[in-house]
């Protein structure tokens, strides 16, 4: 008996020891990764003097890029919400043939290199009858700001769709069923039960889609061009100025992207810390 108790004590002590080792390794790796990420970001910001950085952030080119980036990314995120939420709802609530294929199609752009997406959009909206009809109707996408929004939408819709799909799937259908037995129509159930319960998913989806849209470069450049002061978003400004050797302007564009992303994720953590992304 006594021996057994002693054995148990030893194994508990051993267990504690492995617990501490486990914790140390986890914390150490966590710290290392944080150091790498932070180090890389800080080295960008400290590459120039604060005065030069401030001046170039206030330059016309960077101010234009900030405004255009915010305008296009907010527009494409709203579009994503308008389209992505009903699509995810349809694919989780209705049973129909081809649902599996549709699911894959929605998530396909996730695995496509953005340049491929850009080229596909350029061909569809540029030279086909569909594209010609749209441009005759006054909806011009090639080489315009609308083209940036289109490319961002294309690249970010899978994120919105995926997040909303898992969110809807995690809602217990019983709530919706009960609401229906209490006399709600499908639309009322959606508005009064499903949507409020999907709040965190909506926030998570919007923030992720928005961050992705903000950083979108490859697809947008193919469709809209990288024309200075016309279709020059922050990532484009960063790329153009880095390639032309104008490091201060490049750094200020990068800094603005980091600041915007940081603020967005901070808000995200505060508002929807528990929302599931995948």
């Amino acid at each position: 008996m006594r021996k057994d108790a002693g054995g148990a004590g030893a194994s508990v002590a051993q267990g504690r020891f492995t617990d501490i080792a486990f914790k140390t390794v986890n914390l150490l790796l966590c710290g290392l990764v944080a150091l790498l990420l932070l180090g890389a970001l800080v080295s960008i910001v400290t590459r120039t003097t604060p005065q030069a950085l401030w001046d170039s952030i206030r330059s016309d080119e960077i101010q234009f890029a900030i405004r255009l980036s915010l305008l296009t990314s907010v527009s494409s995120t709203l579009l994503c919400l308008i389209v992505g939420v009903p699509a995810a709802y349809a694919l989780t609530h209705y049973k129909f043939r081809g649902r599996g294929i549709l699911n894959i199609i929605f998530e396909l752009p996730l695995a496509l290199p953005p340049v491929v997406a850009g080229m596909a959009l350029l061909i569809l909206f540029g030279t086909t009858g569909f594209g010609k009809a749209l441009s005759d109707a006054g909806l011009q996408f090639v080489f315009t700001k609308q083209g940036i929004i289109l490319a961002q939408f294309f690249v970010t819709i899978p994120f919105m769709y995926r997040i909303m799909k898992t969110t809807f799937q995690s809602i217990n259908p019983r709530y919706e069923h009960v609401a229906r037995t209490l006399g709600c129509s499908d639309l009322e159930v959606f508005r009064r039960v499903t949507l409020p319960m999907a709040r965190n998913g909506l926030i998570a989806g919007s923030v992720i889609a928005w961050c992705r849209a903000l950083g979108e470069f490859g697809a947008a450049m193919m469709v809209a061009g990288a024309t200075r002061m016309k279709t020059e978003t922050l990532p484009v400004a960063l790329y153009l100025n880095m390639t032309s050797g104008d490091l201060v302007l490049a750094v200020s564009a990068a800094t603005m992207l980091i600041v915007i992303a940081f603020v967005a994720l901070l808000v995200f953590e505060k508002v929807a810390g528990s929302a599931r992304i995948f």
Binding site: F143, M221, M222, A224, G225, A226, T227, R228, K230, T231, Y239, L240, T243
Partner: peptide, 10 residues
Amino acid sequence: VVATFPTMNE
């Protein structure tokens, strides 16, 4: 000129 690009490839 309706658009400009970073390299001659585009």
